[in-house]
Amino acid sequence: MSEDHHHDHHHGHDHHHDNRYSDMQARVRALETVLTEKGLIDPGAIDAIVETYETKIGPRNGAHVVAKAWSDPEFADWLKRDATAAIASLGYSGRQGEHMRAVFNTPDTHNLVVCTLCSCYPWSVLGLPPVWYKAPAYRSRAVIDPRGVLAEFGLTLPHDKKIRVWDSTAELRYLVIPERPEGTGGMGEEELANLVSRDAMIGTAVAGVQP
């Protein structure tokens, strides 16, 4: 029973690169500020509209990456060594060329990804971030008590299973490769991809069990 918190990003001189808003990102925040001050929008209502699209678009790209890793050992190997290139080979790359790292769940280790900034979320493979992912409470609690947070998501892990928490940055984003569920030996990639939810690739769920 041990919990690790990995700060796998560089501390020090280039730390300020972590937080940067592009002109458009900042413009949207500015409009949101003006409209909220004038009482014309309520951020909750905006989140609710975004959420209806987020569930529809879905993280199909990421699920394809996972299904391929399960079915093709060479691809899995490549994904472990150089996730950015392996994922880009399937045609999914971020607009800003951010780096990806795939973290593999194993029988004795479970991986969980956190970050308060939506800019640290791998949209190119996971679609839009869920509202809870952006909530400061999720990040701070996931770092201190990952087991408790997972339990709230309905995921209770054995006590001897190690939990690793990965802290995404704007330059390096993580994708959890869940364990392949038992009894899926005869399935093709497409069928396997259907077992992989967005939450399984963040680490708040496991594959084959829909939240």
Partner: peptide, 14 residues
């Protein structure tokens, strides 16, 4: 609709 980044979805929703 397909959004390249979250801010685009927020702008759309607004």
């Amino acid at each position: 609709p397909v959004f390249p980044e979250p801010w685009a979805a927020e702008a759309f929703a607004m």
